[in-house]
Amino acid sequence: MTEQDEPVAERDILAQATAAGLGKAVDEFPQDVLAAAQAARQARQSLCAPDDSTAEPWPPMRASTPP
C-alpha cells in the first residue's frame, strides 16, 4: 500500500459506514469507525473457510441433545 492509498481506503471505509447508517458516528467518532472496520477485517481474515460450504448452518447453535 502506498502512502497515497491509505487516505483513499479510509474514505472508502467511512463511506461504507455512512451507507450503513453510521453517518453520525462518522462525523463524531471517525477513528472509532476506522477501528471497527479494522476489527471486522481481522475477524474475517482469522475465519477459516468451512470444509463444506453446502453444509446446513441452521439451527446456528445446537449443543448435543440432552441424555
Binding site: A17, A37, A49, A55, P57, P60
Partner: peptide
Amino acid sequence: MAGAFLSAGDYIEAQQRRH
C-alpha cells in the same frame, strides 16, 4: 460497530465453521 463491516456470507460461513 465492527458488525457493520461484515457480510451475511461471513456470518453464514462462521456458523458453518462453528458446526
